[in-house]
Structures are given as C-alpha cells and as structure tokens.
Design a binder for these strands. Structure first.
Lengths: 350, 350
DNA sequence: TTGTATGCGTTATCAA
DNA sequence: TTGATAACGCATACAA
C-alpha cells in the first residue's frame, strides 16, 4: 500500500517551507507566482492531499454530522437519510451513520462514539424517545435534532410529522362520509408514532360523539401479514363495521386482502384507510386511501436546523412539523346516513 | 456551548502527568491503584473523552470506512447498508455515507473527500461501473470493494449477485414448464445489473433453441407504472405470448395489473416472473414468482472483505457471489407442450 | 510507578 | 513574499 505524502515532503521537494505550501493549497496568503507554480506542479505530481485529520485537529472543526437511525427497513428512514445527505453535501458536511436496529444500548453507545469522533451535531431517529435519551443529549456540548419524534417536554429540537393531527383529520373525513362504525389496526405499543396516530383516531371518534370500543382496536407490527391477521381478528368480533383505519400501508393492505378473502367488498361494505402512503400502496389494484408526507423533506429540514445551530454555535429549542395531505381514493366509500348502507365509492383524483 | 475538556486539564486536576492519564484511560501501562482511582474519579466527574481526532492523528488510524451508494430508493441499498453497518460495528469501525443520487461527479468527488478524511477503506455501489471509477480506485492507497457490480476485467474486489446466471436459470425453468413464447421487460440501458439479467434471459432462449424477438424486449425504469406501460406495449405487438420475465418486482406487478386490465388471466394465459423478491411482491394477492437474494448478506460480505484487507494491509483482488433461490409461485403456470395451452398453475411452497 | 519529550500533519501567528 | 514555530490533543518510547 502506498504511503501518503505529507506537506513536509512537498515542502522539501520544492525547497520551500511548509507554511508556503499551506498558503498555496489553501490560497491563504501571498505567494510569488513562480513559487506558486512550482509548488502546484509538485502537488499535482505527488497527488498530495492534506491530512484532514490534522487540519481538523488544528481548526477544531470536523465538518462531520452523525446520524443514528433505528432501522433501514421500509422507505421512511432511507428517504430521510437521503434528504439529510443532500443538505449536508451542499454545506460540505459529511455524514456518519449508525443503524441501531432498534437496540437502545446501541443508540446510547453511538452518542458517545460520535461525540468522541468530534461530530459537530447529531440527528437522532428512534422508535421511542426515552428519558435516558433526553439526559444524554442534554449533556452533549453539540446540537442534536430529533427526527420523527416530538420532544416538546424536553425542549430538544425536533422535526416530525403531525401524526396525531392527520390521524384525527383523516378519521373525521371518514365520519363526514357517513361512517360511524370504526375499527383501528395500530402499530407496536412502544412506537411513539403509532401511538400518536391511534390517539388521533380515538379522539376523532370521541369528538364526533362516537363510542370507542376497545375490542375494535388491535395492535400489530406494521407488516402485511399481520394486517391480515388483525383484520381476521376484528372480523371475529362480529361487530358492525363500515371503516377500518390502519396505522400504515402494509397493515391496510393486509386488511384489504383479508376482507376480500372473506368476501367482503372494499369499499362498498367496508372502507379502508392507511395512515401512510408508500410505494407499497402502488402495488395494489385498488387505489389505497392514505396520508402523504415527505420523509425527504423531513430529513432536509432536520439537517438545515442542525447546521444552523452548528454554525451559530448555540443550542436552541425549535420544532418543525412537516405538511401532509390526505388522499381518499378507491378504498374509501360514502355511507348513506339513514340506513348505513354504502352508495358507491368516492375518491379524489391523485 | 460547553468546551471540551482535554487530557492536559484532567492531568492538571489530578496533579499527575498526561502520560499517566493516558495510561489509565487506555489501560496501557502500570498505574498505582490509588492514583488510578483518583484519575478515574476526575474522568467521571469531568466527563472527559479523549479527542479521537488527536488520537487518530497520532496512531494514523481512523477506524473509518466510507460508503458511496447511488440511491436510497428501493429496499436493496438500504439493506446493504444495514449489513455493512452490522459488520463494521462488530469491528469498532464507523461508517461514512454518501448518496450520489446517480451523479457520476458526486461519486468521483466523494472518493476524494473520503480519501482526504483518511477513511481506511471504501465500499462502492454504483449503477454503472466505468473506466474512470476504475482509474481513481487504482490510484487509491486504500482498499476498495465494489458492491453489486462485477469488475472482473479490472481486478477490483467485488461482491455481487449473479444476475446473468439466475436470470438464465429462472427463464429456463419456465422453458422446462413448456413455455416458448417469451417477452422481457428490462431495466434502464445503463444499469449493469439490468443488462446482465437481460443477457441471461436472452441466452436462456438461445440455449433452449428459441428465437429472440427484439420487439418482445422492452426497457423500462423499474417502476410499477412503467411495467404497466411496457406490458401494454408488448400486448400491442400482437405476438403469441405465454410468459413475461420482468427485471424486477415493480415491473412484474405493473405487467400483471396491465394483463388483468386486458382480461388476460395470470397465470393461465400468461405467466409472469420477476427477477427480484422485495416486499412489494407481498402486497399482491397473486403470489408473485421471483428470485430471492439477500442484500443484507451482500453488505456483510462486502464489509468483511474490506476489513480483512484493511487489517492485513494489502490490496487483493477477490470476488464473491451471493447465493440466490428461485421461487415459482402462483404467477407461473405449466404449459401443455402439445397445443400450447396451460394446464393449471404450479407453485412451490414458500 | 511516574514523568518528559517527541511525533502525528496541519493551520496560523509573528518575525524576517 | 517567506520561514520558524507554536498550537491542536493525544500516544508512546525512554528516562527517572
């Protein structure tokens, strides 16, 4: 393996001091044209590249941002990373990534590791934001922005989707279409985003004067398979039902498959809405209704907030909510108020 | 923002030299129990963490690996990253990531950037491996492993799927089921993986004594929508057809949707096979036939090869192909040889 | 068992 | 216009 050439070597070859070489490379001072030319030639020949480590040590800046994510499965986090990546590159920052695969220990460990690597800021995406996270973040002398979680009580900057709000709003849209018999297929009980959506759903019912039946709320694990089984379980409750709200696309698809296997027409007998809008939904024949939001934008905003704090050199609490749009498509139908029967499916374009 | 405390500060507070502090922290030499205790206490109190930059500069090791990927869309690269991440963490290495979003310039630039960051190795995943890539890699004094591309002529280590082979084998499986009228929906013309699969398909036909009709090969862009339109286009050719092989799941799904819209039964009239097996396939009612391979494993193997070369300190050409399995499921049927009609669908479990 | 001194490869300050 | 030299924060060989 070739050895790296350093500034001293270049200086020696040119018969000048390292200071002059540094000035040439960084254009950081006056150099006579002839010596500049000579040095540039040697730099070209030797392929000299300054050791950024040494530079960073001297400058006390690493131009490094760390990002801790809990998963690489599904399109959400990868797209978020992509957004982060874009903004960081525009600002000549580099991205250090750690995927914890849901391990709390791994998350905590990487705050330490990233810190000792002297990253200038950290982006943090976890499934469940805990007190310990908050504690370690507050000890850090660098800015941290939490992604996809609200941390309002803790005064830690975050960028998130307004899960509670869009879940409530989307459910109310179904109510306005005449639905009054709702079921909910939720996510893991420790996934904050899933819980917020569930609360949004529940509050939509309450605010609409409907009762919330515990038996008609099932918690799943986000997968298509589990959506199927949870729908199966809902059907076995033998309750009247005109609408199923699922916490994500996968479970909505599983639910639809299950309903169809039971000879239930979607949406004429039961409407299905997913609180999500991923590429999965596109695979369905039936156009799935859902809520759309951009993970890429979320990543971009997160990175921008972080960079702002890095550059201004101050930690500041701020929060951003990324916009969403609700799309009712073929999987949702209107209910005729008088007798509870459907009167054909409605769907907005797009 | 708090200032970082350094080893000198800790030494001063303890009334010892920095060497002793270093010895305590790294457990790298004899220290009297009482002074050790005292130093550990101060370390605890001050939250001292050694500046890894300085350490790395002194040790000339960064424990950093760079990874350049061309996309974060789709499940392939994210899963690959996950595999890489796992292996790297086991070996106490950190992962610097750059997503080029397909930009050749960005890729080339990040070889430079990563190099100047003194990464100890680079993992590289691009859509089309070019001469320029090869050139810049060969100039690098650190090991590079190419992912998801073969670089045989260039003698650069790689880990890939055997696209050509599984495409050929899967196509022949259809031939063995009696199919002789094939169409192919391919990928972008500059995507090496797509091209290899297409060649595998073509050679399967040739080796089976079948003719290859140019008109029955369409190139698409991997999306469900485009799969639909390419199938539409194939149908408009008005050729006899019993099997469609698509380069990925998305286009296979689009093709199936199109066929169903045209009242063509899958698989009784036309069988469909995707050379892929992603979560998308699970969204379909009809169990899609495809080829399965693990991106996570690919990432792991790539990281292992790279680490081996980093640790042994020598660049070495080696190649690895990740195993695959072919799964014929409901979307594929047997053809009765005599008259070309189907005789029901077959599918292997799983 | 502990301390001193040097090197790691830069940048930056100051003097020449 | 240039060069010497002091940081930057740590590891480590060598001395005590």
């Amino acid at each position: 393996m070739k050895k790296d050439i350093n500034i001293k070597e270049v200086a020696r070859k040119c018969g000048v001091s390292i200071a002059t070489v540094s000035r040439v490379f960084n254009n950081s001072g006056p150099v006579k044209e002839s010596t500049r030319k000579k040095i540039e030639k040697i730099i070209e020949e030797t392929g000299y590249r300054p050791n950024v480590l040494a530079r960073e040590l001297a400058e006390k800046k690493t131009h490094l941002v760390g990002m801790i994510v809990h998963s690489m499965i599904g399109e959400g986090l990868p797209r978020t990373i992509n957004g982060v990546n874009d903004v960081l590159q525009q600002h000549d920052f580099n991205l250090l990534i750690s995927c914890s695969n849901g391990s709390f220990e791994s998350e905590m460990k990487h705050f330490e590791i990233f810190r000792s690597k002297r990253v200038e800021g950290i982006l943090f995406a976890t499934r469940e934001f805990k007190k310990e996270h908050s504690k370690i973040i507050k000890k850090l002398p660098i800015p941290v922005v939490v992604l996809l979680q609200k941390t309002s009580q803790e005064k830690i900057p975050y960028v998130a989707f307004d899960n509670y709000r869009f879940a409530k709003e989307a459910t109310k849209r179904l109510f306005e279409l005449g639905h009054s018999k709702f079921a909910f297929i939720g996510g893991p009980v420790n996934a904050t985003n899933a819980i917020e959506r569930q609360q949004g759903f529940v509050h939509a019912l309450l605010e609409s004067g409907l009762e919330v039946e515990e038996a008609l709320i099932k918690n799943g694990d986000y997968t298509i398979e589990d959506g199927y089984w949870k729908m199966e379980s809902l059907l076995s409750e033998k309750k009247e039902l005109t609408a199923v709200v699922a916490v994500n696309d996968g479970m909505a698809i599983g639910a639809i498959n299950c309903l169809q296997d039971h000879g239930v027409n979607v949406p004429d007998e039961i409407s299905v809405l997913g609180l999500d809008d991923t590429v999965l939904a596109k695979a369905l024949r039936l156009k799935l209704s859902g809520v759309h939001y951009s993970y890429t934008d979320l990543g971009k905003v997160g990175a921008e907030i972080l960079l702002k704090q890095i550059e201004s050199n101050e930690l500041k609490f701020e929060k951003h909510l990324i916009p969403y749009t609700i799309h009712l498509r073929e999987s949702v139908a209107r209910v005729k108020p008088s007798d509870g029967r459907m009167i054909g499916n409605i769907f907005s374009p797009q």
